[in-house]
Design a protein around this nucleic acid. Sequence first.
RNA 1: GGAGUUGGCUGGACGGUCGCUGUUAUUUAUUUAGCAGAGGAAAGUCCGGGCUCCAUGGGCAGGAUGCCAGGUAACUCCUGGGAGACGUGAGUCUACGGAAAGUGCAACAGAAAAUAGACUACCAUUUUUUUGGAAAAGGUGAAAAGGUGUGGUAAGAGCACACCGCAUGAGUGGUAACAUUUAUGGCAAGGCAAACCCCAUCCGGAGCAAGACCAAAUAGGGGAACAUUUAAGUGAAGCCCACAUAUAGUUCCCGGGUAGGUUGCUAGAGAGAGAUGGCGACAUUUUUCCCAGAUGAAUGACCGUGCUUGACAGAACCCGGCUUAUAGGCCAACUCCUACC
RNA 2: GGGCCGUUAGCUCAAUCAGGUAGAGCAGCAGACUCUUAAUCUGUUGGUUAUAGGUUCGAUUCCUAUACGGCCCA
Length: 114
Amino acid sequence: MTPDNLSRFSKSMRINKEEDFSFVFAQPNRSVDKFFSVISRDNNLDLPRLGLSISKKVVNLAVERNRIKRVVRSAFIEQINLKNHDFIVMARRDAVKQGNKTLRNSLCNHFKKI
RNA sequence: GGAGUUGGCUGGACGGUCGCUGUUAUUUAUUUAGCAGAGGAAAGUCCGGGCUCCAUGGGCAGGAUGCCAGGUAACUCCUGGGAGACGUGAGUCUACGGAAAGUGCAACAGAAAAUAGACUACCAUUUUUUUGGAAAAGGUGAAAAGGUGUGGUAAGAGCACACCGCAUGAGUGGUAACAUUUAUGGCAAGGCAAACCCCAUCCGGAGCAAGACCAAAUAGGGGAACAUUUAAGUGAAGCCCACAUAUAGUUCCCGGGUAGGUUGCUAGAGAGAGAUGGCGACAUUUUUCCCAGAUGAAUGACCGUGCUUGACAGAACCCGGCUUAUAGGCCAACUCCUACC
RNA sequence: GGGCCGUUAGCUCAAUCAGGUAGAGCAGCAGACUCUUAAUCUGUUGGUUAUAGGUUCGAUUCCUAUACGGCCCA
């Protein structure tokens, strides 16, 4: 993997605001499996962006929530062909029990689909 | 060697590539380099503080603590001591002031449950069922007017005596809780205060989503000073009182604060090492160090080496405790059992 | 992050302040009425009082800890 600007994950590539979330939820392309449900939509920027939605109800422990976030981000960074999309990744209950590798594989499949 | 008690430490290591947060330097669209980057519980929010606002003061209500002495900024914490309970023992546990200030409670059972009384049974008397004596025995209950033995008696009884327990006085030791010795008393009427309460000591309330600053939008007022009248309303955030203040008048000023942003935000009752004092908690002092500061929320991903295959678990203003969760490993002191010398 | 509540029968709630056999309605089951069902009436079952300790003779109740659920504060 070569380091260039697109593969970094900085603040501009996060989805923080309520408007951006509802923007994606308005016209979603869904991709669902046991561990995650991923939603995406074209945006008007040059960057791909990522939002995370992991609620306390789904994942009880703070340690596990942080672990899942890291896995999702690192998987997101490795993708190169995501030019103008906003993504929202929502964790599901079965993701807690799985190790890092199986989660990465499922995420890679999601990103390829979209 | 086995079983155990107490106290403490540790909480995956190393190398490579890429990435995240803060910061310093260089350059200033920004790039590059260096440095730092979760815990012993960061948790529960159970206590105690710091800090911030509530204009200020007094009283009441309310709350907390509760053997004694000390430590601490403070404490529901810690240390040492006493008493009681448990354990063969090392040790462990204890909201452990007051019931002779007052109020209250004790279902069912039982004769009787709180100013005691007499069911069965006992003794005397006698008209054969009254009267008197006595409270030892039985049974009920969580609890029934000291316990055991001997004497004594009509039958009995601290009625008398011995030992034990209890109460009171005095002496001795101890800062004290308390311990102990001795004398006296024949023995009080009990339990519950994590029931109200009394006594002693302490406590104002709310919380960083506190508070301060910048400031789109929206509404139409807001603030300061002076003088005067009045005491209803308001300030108020437990209640009451004091206190202040409104409406209306004059003068002056321009702010207001939702979205969002900045700040509060980390150098501190700080950490490591040493010395001195103290049984100890801890204190004093010397020296070295700077050790997270995010805000949709940073510690990761991949590869390799290698073992014991890595428990509980993620800072959100900051400290001191307590409580709860916790794989494995290590250290020290002590106790009991067994075997050998 | 901080503040504050609750947990009792299958469900909705009492009893808790001030300790003494844990109760009501609905639901379930059985019976009566009816040709049958519904409605109605009668009877009845069902509880580790969230969990673990403590105080007490005795705890749903008082105290402490834990677990789960809920509410409020930009």
